[in-house]
Design a protein around this nucleic acid. Structure first.
Lengths: 147, 147
DNA sequence: GTCTGAATTGCAAATGAGTCGCAAGTGCAA
DNA sequence: TTGCACTTGCGACTCATTTGCAATTCAGAC
């Protein structure tokens, strides 16, 4: 997904503080990683990349959950039984949101599809139509490579 | 989803044998349960219901996986990090397939949506269009009750 | 700039879903 | 009816995630 340039350290700190989270080193490392990831990232990937920098797995976990609770990131299971984390759109709209995800059954690759790729037919049951109640769309199948 | 009447014990046995699985008591119990479940069932739900009948958790698990491997059932993670199993359409078409699933973020309830509720816009990338590569569609959000 | 309380971290231990090994039991084809 | 491969039950085990807690580090107040 498009990205509005690499955020500065101050940008990251601000984003954390705005969410009432302290800007600690491991937290910043996690946040930076999420900013730079093109698709949702699993805890394992994150921990593996961050371990060399000396951050504890439990700390990475807690931070991921903190970011999720604070509404900065979102935690999903894309159908392969692995939690993945993805940054949510921030105030200046530089991050995307609401796009469908596609997970390959074969290789496990996760990709983001453009918004609008999937249309939900309105059904008139209940006060809110289905479309308005949906917060996330996930498709599974074979990616082009594995086709 | 619609069901073509309660299957007889012999129906169940036949379905297993056709798949080269022995018709053992716990296997039949699991299969019957899946037939009667209106939506995908988690292992825990199944084990809890079948435990009183004396079936072991591990056995239930293995059977669920056997049925999946045999193509009788399908195993999915609907986004909440819980494996759920669902019967696939059998030869006489009495079971459904290919319908989207909706999982409530709030209460965790899983429901099946009618086929056609979700439309995938064709994108012209690759030899097969996206639509043709998708095997499953999952929506998440608030169910009507939790709305 | 220093201080202080509260938020965080790191480590180790706990938890829990799901899996595996193996001896005993059972379905089914001959 | 019989033999054997398939299954079961049970306990042990794995591995991702969580938790407890003492030590450390932020960030606002002085």
């Amino acid at each position: 997904m498009a990205r509005a340039g690499k955020p500065s350290l101050d940008d990251l700190k601000t984003r954390l503080r705005d969410a009432d989270l302290r800007a600690t080193a491991p937290r910043l490392a996690v946040l930076r990683f999420l900013y730079e990831a093109p698709t949702p990232v699993s805890h394992a990937e994150l921990a593996d990349k961050l371990a060399p920098e000396g951050w504890d797995r439990a700390t990475v976990y807690r931070n991921l959950n903190d970011l999720t609770d604070a509404g900065i990131a979102r935690k999903t299971d894309l159908g392969d039984h692995v939690w993945r984390f993805e940054l949510l759109k921030d105030t200046d709209g530089s991050h995307t949101d609401a796009h469908p995800h596609f997970v390959c059954d074969e290789c496990g690759e996760v990709s983001c599809l453009p918004e609008g790729t999937v249309e939900i037919k309105s059904t008139r049951n209940g006060p809110l139509r289905l479309k308005e109640r949906v917060s996330e769309i996930q498709l599974k199948g074979r990616c082009e490579r594995c086709n």
